[in-house]
Design a protein around this nucleic acid. Structure first.
Lengths: 213, 213
DNA sequence: AGGAGCATCATCCGATCGGTTGATGGCCTG
DNA sequence: CAGGCCATCAACCGATCGGATGATGCTCCT
């Protein structure tokens, strides 16, 4: 792998941040900042024109949101990898940004070396996530495990799974080698636990809480 | 934050790997390997008995799969953080492992220092993902954005939404200012479209296809 | 103009469900 | 060892559902 120079584009509404990043990357001959934009719309234009390897993108911007910009680039099949650089890890746009096609997601307080590493990784298409973001992602995926799933007993879950497949009580009984009465008992119990009154609502509640899915 | 010693448990079916890891961590006074297990079942037992800070867990094991072991620990509310250490990044158990409650996920070829860092991070509850795994996670999150419905008519969706809330046909009729007969017609139609035979299965199918949720 | 799809309504009936009450035995925890 | 949670079973009954069938009127597209 040849040590190519990585071309960059900086998109951030704060001139101070843009200058800071520009200076930082200028100090390393492995990078070349092609340009800057102060908003998402302008950023998309520049990306299409300058075709950088990596785009450092802020999310919160007045002139064209970062997420929309990322989505626009993804839609147009831009070659550039987008590395989100944001200030707050509490940002609610985290997941949307990643869904929109961001290659990485870092906090602005990341140390200089980490930033460099991340940009190189992004240029190669590798995913880079700061720990806080990784946690958030994991939580998003884990929605089934975390939210108190210990509510239903194993047997009750088993019955519920069959219910979700459209199985009748009698069939469930046969399937699980128990009597229909027992199936009904399990159902009444899990209705109470889920706070619903029929099987359809139970299935919905189970999906909402990640018990099914 | 006091620099506490981090206690470890190693779960892997290969003695060589166990020895290697043990030796590696023995060389650093910041870690204390409490024990080893050769399988998931044994691993769970040891975790409950020794109560380590971090568990290094292999996924592919003959005696009790890693994913099951992680799920078991999560279910029992074990304090230990699980750091998955596997050989292949193509492992299909990646997502399940994380869903089951793994705190981190690394490849075995990770450099020694990275491993140490990851263990310390895991001990603090921070999420650690190797790049390949991060990519996989991102893909998993990004996937659900695609699915389109369009199958059901607006009215049918409306009925289905109420069904998911446990509303009876009669109540749905009142709610939508139509007759109960009409509600049933909508239902039979949407059952056919979704390929199911009752309301519970319809709700499940709708969640699976992203029509509800 | 004609057909397709949608929304609306009606009736009838067997199948299924949900609620209730009551009971037995196993397992774990305090 | 008592009390709690779980799994199991029973019998009964009213409420609800699902299926079949047939019909009317609307809109959209061809």
């Amino acid at each position: 792998m040849t040590e190519r120079i990585i071309t960059l584009l900086i998109v951030d509404d704060h001139p101070v941040v843009r200058d800071g990043l520009r200076g930082m990357f200028a100090s390393d001959p492995g990078f070349d900042v092609l340009g800057e934009a102060g908003g998402g719309v302008e950023g998309v234009e520049l990306v299409l024109r300058l075709d950088p390897d990596v785009v450092l993108m802020d999310l919160r911007m007045p002139a064209g949101g970062g997420v929309e910009a990322i989505a626009a680039l993804t839609r147009r099949g831009a070659r550039a990898k987008v590395l989100v650089l944001t200030t707050y890890d509490t940002d609610s746009d985290t997941i949307p940004a990643i869904e929109a096609g961001a290659t990485g997601y870092l906090l602005k307080d990341a140390p200089r070396e980490e930033l460099f590493t991340a940009v190189r990784a992004a240029a190669e298409g590798r995913t880079v996530l700061s720990p806080a973001i990784a946690s958030r992602l994991v939580s998003a995926v884990r929605k089934p495990a975390v939210p108190a799933d210990g509510v239903l007993s194993a047997r009750e879950r088993e019955v519920l799974e069959l219910v979700a497949k459209g199985t009748s009580n009698r069939e469930i009984a046969r399937e699980l080698f128990i009597s229909e009465a027992t199936v009904k008992t399990h159902l009444t119990h899990l209705y109470a636990k889920l706070g619903v009154k029929d099987r359809a609502a139970a299935v919905a509640a189970a999906y909402d809480r990640g018990i099914l899915g």
